[in-house]
């Protein structure tokens, strides 16, 4: 556990040292703030004290930002050879992978916590469903964790960061919309399978304020699959 934290700590400080963290936070707050408060069917348009608009936007902004954060995780270490330095320390592949996962997740949590003023503001404007807001945040964190895990996996496959980024987006887009579309255009069990596989199904159900064990199982399986996949790829070097 201590080693996982050591790895995570280094990753997190490298996010902040390289300014990547600040750029990501500013861009995330800028995008989601703009679309939540200023443009189109914004939060006032709904005529309801709810953060649904924000959650809908964050669902997309995070989808694009996360692969950009995870793409260098393992690919860069492979390219510069530091992965050899890391793997010859008393540290398992699993600890390396989870350390990197935790660091990115922490960054996302930091970015999300900076949107808490939105929550406070809207709560002043009217009766807000507090449960739904907290579950909405939980949904965003779980979704982010899933994509982080996928992103780390694609980063472990290659030593080219761009390839890792595009691959993560490609896998992500299936979960994000394609499975949902397929569920809509098919019928029968197949539709149900795709419906279950679609990220939006579970995300929406959580952000509407319903916490179902099915959703938790869904997110946790993606996270675990991605992490185990990366671990296997790393261990395969031998």
């Amino acid at each position: 556990m201590k080693s996982i934290w050591t790895v995570a700590h280094r990753e997190l400080s490298s996010f902040f040292d390289s300014l990547l963290a600040y750029i990501m936070i500013v861009a995330f707050l800028g995008f989601s703030g703009f679309f939540t408060w200023l443009r189109g069917s914004d939060i006032f348009f709904v005529n309801q004290a709810s953060l649904q608009t924000f959650f809908g936007i964050a669902y997309w902004t995070l989808f694009f930002f996360i692969p950009a954060l995870t793409m260098r995780m393992i690919a860069e270490e492979r390219k510069t050879g530091t992965i050899e330095m890391l793997l010859t320390k008393p540290l398992s592949e699993w600890q390396i992978v989870t350390g990197k996962f935790l660091a990115t997740l922490l960054l996302i949590v930091i970015a999300l916590s900076l949107t808490l003023p939105y929550y406070i503001t809207v709560a002043q404007l009217g009766d807000i469903d507090h449960g739904a807001v907290w579950l909405g945040y939980l949904g965003l964190i779980l979704m982010s964790a899933s994509y982080i895990s996928v992103g780390i996996f694609t980063s472990s496959l290659t030593n080219n960061q761009i390839v890792a980024f595009l691959l993560a987006l490609l896998i992500g887009i299936f979960f994000h919309i394609i499975f949902g579309i397929m569920a809509g255009s098919l019928s029968g069990t197949l539709a149900n399978v795709f419906y279950f596989l679609s990220m939006s199904t579970h995300y929406e159900s959580i952000s509407r304020g319903v916490l179902d064990s099915k959703d938790i199982i869904y997110f946790c399986s993606i996270i675990l699959l991605g992490l185990i996949g990366s671990q296997v790829v790393l261990a395969n070097r031998k």
Binding site: T6, R10, S14, D17, M85, T88, K89
Partner: peptide, 30 residues
């Protein structure tokens, strides 16, 4: 791995880290 000190070929290092932070990181891992 606990008992080995290894200097790989081409000496890969985290270039963005200050020397002292790097040494602290390695000390913790070891």
């Amino acid at each position: 791995k606990k008992h080995i000190g290894y200097l790989p070929e081409n000496n890969p290092l985290y270039l963005e880290m200050p020397v002292i932070d790097y040494l602290r990181f390695v000390a913790k891992l070891q």
